[in-house]
Amino acid sequence: AVSDRLIGRKGVVMEAISPQNSGLVKVDGETWRATSGTVLDVGEEVSVKAIEGVKLVVEKLE
């Protein structure tokens, strides 16, 4: 699937994400809805860990 190529890629949070609410991330110039187990603020760099349906699962870049 086209989304599989995104796993491991870096992105930037465009709309804040929390465990309760999905947000938006931009990866390779495309905007995706994303979820995370932690709070991520706009502008934070993330990496794509998995894909669930049409949402990316991301975590903060260390």
Rank of each mutant, 00 (worst) to 15 (best):
K60I: 05
L56Q: 01
A1Q: 14
S47T: 13
L61N: 08
E44S: 14
R9P: 02
G37A: 13
S47R: 15
V13D: 00
L56S: 01
D41T: 13
V2G: 13
G23E: 00
Q20P: 15
Q20V: 08
V2C: 10
V54W: 07
P19Y: 08
S47D: 05
K26R: 11
T35F: 04
V48A: 02
L6V: 09
E62L: 11
W32L: 06
L40R: 02
G37L: 13
E62Y: 14
I17N: 02
E30A: 05
R33S: 14
L24K: 10
G23T: 01
A1V: 14
G11P: 01
V13Y: 00
I51Q: 05
S22Q: 09
V27N: 00
V13R: 00
G11F: 01
L6R: 04
M14T: 14
L6A: 03
V57C: 04
I51D: 02
E44H: 08
G8N: 06
R9W: 11
I17Y: 01
R5P: 14
G43T: 08
S18L: 07
E62N: 14
E62K: 14
L24V: 12
D41M: 14
L61W: 10
A34E: 01
V25W: 00
K10S: 09
G23S: 01
L56G: 01
I51K: 04
V48R: 00
L24N: 05
S47Q: 12
I17K: 01
V54C: 08
V25G: 01
R5T: 15
G43V: 02
G37N: 09
T38F: 11
A1N: 08
V12A: 07
I51M: 09
K26S: 12
I7E: 03
V57P: 00
G53I: 04
L40D: 01
M14P: 00
E52H: 10
V58W: 00
Q20K: 09
T38H: 07
E15T: 08
N21E: 11
G8I: 02
E52L: 10
E59C: 06
G23M: 03
I7N: 03
I7F: 04
E59S: 11
L6H: 04
T38E: 12
R5Q: 15
S22A: 13
K55F: 15
Q20C: 10
T35K: 06
D4V: 08
V25N: 00
V12E: 06
M14N: 06
A50R: 08
S18T: 15
S47M: 11
K10E: 08
R33D: 15
E62H: 15
I7A: 03
L6Y: 05
A1I: 13
S18V: 12
D28M: 07
E44K: 05
R9N: 06
I7W: 03
S36G: 06
M14L: 14
T31I: 15
V46Y: 01
V39N: 10
I7G: 02
G53P: 03
S18H: 12
N21W: 13
E62D: 14
V13S: 02
K10D: 08
A34H: 00
E59L: 06
V12S: 08
T31L: 14
K10V: 10
A16N: 14
A50K: 10
L6G: 02
E52F: 07
S3V: 12
V46M: 03
W32Q: 04
V46Q: 00
K26H: 12
L61R: 08
V57M: 07
G29D: 15
V39R: 09
V2I: 15
G23Q: 01
K60P: 09
T38Y: 09
V12G: 02
E45L: 13
G37S: 09
E15C: 07
R9D: 03
L61A: 11
A16H: 13
V48D: 00
I17S: 02
R5D: 14
S3E: 15
